[in-house]
Every structure is written in C-alpha cells, then in structure tokens.
C-alpha cells in the first residue's frame, strides 16, 4: 500500500513507495505482451484524463494503462487559454468528480496545479505533468527502465542534460534517483540552469562532457524551440553544438551506459540520429515501460481499499 492517496510528485514519495511501484510494474509488464491485454483488476473504476496541455504519448499511455486493467477511462482535453476565459479548474474538476470518477489524471501548464486539485476533490489525483514542477510517472518509468537494464538504482552515476530550468522531468528524476541512492549530475546552458539546484541534491556541472563522463545513465531532455526566441540561447545551431549529444560525447560514458529521452525527440538538436537509433538507446523501451508503470500507479491508488 502506498503512503499517499495522490501521486503529486516524487519529492513527497517515500523510497519504499517507489520500490513498491517499480515491483508492481514489473509484474504488470507482461500483460502488455499478451494476446488478450486485459485483466479485471480495476473493473468498475472510472478514470478521467484531464489534459490542459497537448500531449499524445502520456495521455495515450495512461489511457491504455487504465484499459488494460479494465477501468473505464475518458478524456477531457482543453487548452489552458480557453479555460482561463471560462470555467475554473476547480469547477471543472468538481463537475467531473460528481460523475463518480475514482482518479483524475491531470496535465496542466501551471506548476502546483495537481497539488491544488488534490485539495479540492476527493478522488485520487495523479500528476501527469504540472508546469515546470514535476512529472512523477515519467521519472518512475525512467527508473523502471534503468533498473531493468542495470539491476539496481543504487550507486549509479546519472547525467541529465538540457533545459533543466523548465524541466519537470528533470525535477522528478532528481528527486527519484537521489532517493534511490544514485548520484545525479545536471548540465545545460547557464541561462537554463535554475538557482540553488544543488540544494535539491543534484550536482550541476558546466559542460555536458563532464556530466556524461563515466555515467551509467544518460538522460537527454527535450529543448523547447521557443526558448531561443526568449533569448535563453542564441541559436539552435549553437545549442546543438555545445549541448547536443552525439556519438563522441556518449563515448565518454561507461561502455554499457544507456541513453534515455522522455520524447518526443528533436532529432539532430539534443540528440543525433546515430545515438537515438544506436545500441545504447532505450528510448523505445521507455514507452512500453511507461504503460506498465502507470498501470502500477493506478492499481496502488485506486485498486482495493485504503483502509
């Protein structure tokens, strides 16, 4: 049983919670490969995907995770801008809740939106990405993938590089991997490095090579191209030159290092095609593991009674 009713982030999750979720995901993973991908575990449960930001893979992943467990899943998508003019998040959520849902999966552009929602509904709230705060299921699936390949999450050197400032994936991974006993190095342009990041337990380094050197795990982040227009880096070309990962830079990592990316990838910008499609890349396996991890999260939050 999880210590929490909601999954708002990895900051407040205990190490034992993470271990439990990863173990459960392991047992759920084989369901995805079955001919008949359905178990009755969450039959009669209703789940809503409340997505205020465009997302295909995370929403689909949650939806399939629910369906494989026999829950009824529905999607509510809206852009934050249209909502701003109309109904508030609180009112929308309460309306949906009154229809009897057991879990609300929320993706929203405001940091803290999932936490806010959890104070206003009695259903379990699952954070599928809130602004630049956290994206816990992404970090869980990253950890699951790493554990599958490395056998452990303890004592690893993990390098995360890119736009750390705006990355909810980076924050959740920093919390998660450090909790599990790994060392996390972060690298990115100084304009995209948040202040006092070391107080979160990460080790900031100036250049990507330093982060990647002798790493067991390399996690690339997606660079939002509009950051360039805001003057956070001069050109895509220069970004790619200094903070893109190619075969030569990846060679600095341990020979058995694995490469992750939350997707979708900007080919040729943060990663070259040769490393995306190379033997060290586990990007496609992350996607499959994402469904298994989300099944585990749904199972522990709404399967069975908490009392």
């Amino acid at each position: 049983m999880l210590s929490q009713k909601h999954l708002l982030g990895l900051e407040n999750l205990q190490k034992s919670d993470i271990e439990l979720l990863l173990e459960t995901a392991e047992s759920f993973k084989e369901i995805i490969d079955r001919d008949v991908k359905k178990v009755p575990t969450l039959r009669g449960k209703a789940i809503v995907n409340l997505f205020y930001e465009p997302s295909t893979r995370t929403r689909t992943s949650f939806e399939l995770a629910g369906k494989y467990l026999s829950a009824d899943t529905i999607n509510f998508t809206s852009s934050a801008s249209s909502v701003r003019k109309g109904e508030t998040l609180k009112d929308t959520a309460k309306t949906i809740e009154m229809m009897g849902v057991d879990a609300v999966i929320i993706r929203h552009s405001s940091s803290g939106a999932a936490s806010y929602l959890s104070r206003h509904v009695t259903a379990s709230v699952i954070n599928a990405g809130d602004g630049t705060h956290e994206h816990p299921t992404q970090a869980l699936l990253d950890m699951f993938t790493v554990k599958e390949k490395k056998g452990t999450l303890s004592g690893l050197k993990v390098a995360i590089f890119g736009d750390i400032l705006h990355s909810r994936v980076a924050r959740s991974n920093i919390f998660g991997f450090t909790k599990m006993g790994s060392e996390v190095f972060v690298a990115g342009p100084s304009t995209l490095m948040p202040p006092d990041i070391e107080q979160m337990g990460a080790k900031p380094v100036e250049i990507i090579e330093e982060a990647v050197r002798d790493a067991d795990v390399v996690i690339a982040l997606r660079i939002q191209l509009e950051r360039q227009q805001k003057g956070l880096f001069p050109t895509i070309r220069e970004y790619s030159k200094f903070f893109g990962l190619n075969k030569d830079k990846l060679a600095l990592a341990k020979s058995d290092a694995i490469l992750l990316h939350p997707g979708p990838v900007n080919r040729g910008i943060e990663l070259t095609s040769e490393v995306i499609d190379g033997s060290q890349s586990v990007i496609n396996q992350q996607v499959k593991n994402g469904v298994a991890v989300r099944m585990a999260v749904l199972y522990h939050l709404i399967g069975g009674s908490r009392e």
Partner: peptide
C-alpha cells in the same frame, strides 16, 4: 522569489 524554493516548486523567479 528567485532561489531555492522557486527551483523546488518550478515557479518562475
């Protein structure tokens, strides 16, 4: 405020 807590909460500083 821009600093430790804004980094933690992912809020613009």
């Amino acid at each position: 405020n821009e600093g430790r807590v804004s980094t933690l909460l992912g809020l613009a500083g």
